[in-house]
């Protein structure tokens, strides 16, 4: 059941992320909905679910953009791993903590992605632009994550798959 719910959110996240235009400010970052699902899995679910979410979300995000396949998987792994390390110090069901998790992970994923794209010679953003975009992603993560976490948790509670406190 948990797997089905996760797959449902990944599908919803992929669809939404593909139809929502990037934010017009701060380097035009995309809304981190798929990343949100990965971070939710990293902070609330078993380790295996986090890995599976990172893989599926990464493949989805790469397929729906011009990014080479595998890049987002790596970026989500790095951001999710960071969230996983911090998960014991925070409560993922607290709004402010979810927001900080979101900001930190979104900035990390964007930074990793900028490095990967530069390394592949596809997009060489100047350092200032990359940092600006990371800040933009952090702002979006700060706003999107608590909402997404609340929605995901709400659905899980209704379905009876919520494992948290």
């Amino acid at each position: 059941m948990t797997l089905l719910v996760l797959l449902f959110w990944l599908l919803v996240g992929g669809t939404l992320q593909g139809v929502m235009p990037a934010w017009r400010h701060m380097g035009q970052p995309a809304f981190p909905i798929l990343l949100g699902v990965v971070i939710y899995a990293a902070t609330n679910k078993k380790f295996g679910y986090f890995l599976l979410a990172a893989l599926i979300a990464g493949v989805l995000e790469d397929s729906l953009s011009l990014v080479p396949l595998g890049s987002s998987v790596a970026a989500f792994l790095v951001a999710g791993w960071l969230a996983l390390r911090l998960r014991t110090h925070f409560f993922a069901d607290k709004v402010s903590h979810a927001a900080w998790f979101g900001a930190l992970s979104a900035a990390t994923a964007t930074g990793t992605m900028a490095l990967l794209l530069r390394w592949q010679g596809l997009l060489a953003l100047p350092l200032r632009d990359a940092l600006w975009r990371m800040a933009g992603s952090a702002v979006l993560g700060l706003v999107v994550m608590p909402v997404l976490f609340a929605l995901m948790r709400g659905l899980e509670r209704r379905l009876g798959t919520w494992e948290g406190a």
Binding site: A54, D62, S63, P68, G70, L77
Partner: peptide, 24 residues
């Protein structure tokens, strides 16, 4: 999983295009 990401990264262009196309 990092290894899987690396494999995906190094997939031949045609295979990568097919996978991405199927998801799209």
């Amino acid at each position: 999983l990092a290894l899987v990401a690396l494999v995906l990264f190094n997939l031949p262009e045609a295979t990568s295009t097919r996978v991405k196309g199927a998801v799209r």
